[in-house]
Amino acid sequence: MKIGVLLKQVPDTETKIKIRADGKGVEEGEIKWVINPYDEYAVEEALRLKEKAGGEVVIVSAGPARATEAIRQALAMGADRGIRIDTTGIEQDPYTTAVMLAGAAKNESFEIIFAGKQAVDDDCAQVLIGVAEKLGWPHVTPVEKFALSGKTATLQRPVAGGTKEMIEADLPVVVGCEKGLNEPRYASLPGIMKAKSKPVAELKASELLGTERARINVTKYSLPPERRAGKIIPGEPEAAAAELVRLLREEAKVI
């Protein structure tokens, strides 16, 4: 079985984000780059499927040269080979990324594709859906349980408030992986060493994109207002509780 994994290299969520002076992006100097955490679940699920069904796990990522490192990390976990679409000089948004990844995937004729449910840098949660649409495949996301029998996948998708959908999907399908789907393995040292010599093919973004251009025009990056120091709500329990409920609704807007 030929299994594809869509992978993105993102800044560690703890990284301090600094806006470039021109306001058109973030400074990349001090960023610690990691595999998008949700993509680790995708790699793990792909590896588990391969261990059961045999075949090959191919990592596909669209990014600049540094993204190769993330691909290697996935190879260290046990994936067989990687494809990096070199996006140097390309304006990347969910649309162009989906077009490029779908283009690469088409050439590979995968039978199933796993991806993280979203990337933690832009949190768009669009790319895997876009790839499915471009390939004419169904997609299911987010998925917290996955099983395959024959050419039919059974998936569990959490929706609001603890409700879960049990979905049956015909292969090929794109699966968006949610936390809890599995516990990603810890790469072994031989895995890390072997990953150094596994093949990572490079594709040109321009060839996959043709004349397609980004559909999101980011006009400005800015920092959010400084997080206010915590607010201690004074007063007797009754009054304090009432005020807290009001603040959560009106100020924090979380209730």
Binding site: M77, G78, R185, A187, S188, P190, G191, M193, K194
Partner: peptide, 9 residues
């Protein structure tokens, strides 16, 4: 060689 294996030995 454990390198023949994948991530796992």
């Amino acid at each position: 060689s454990p390198l023949d294996g994948e991530g796992k030995m």
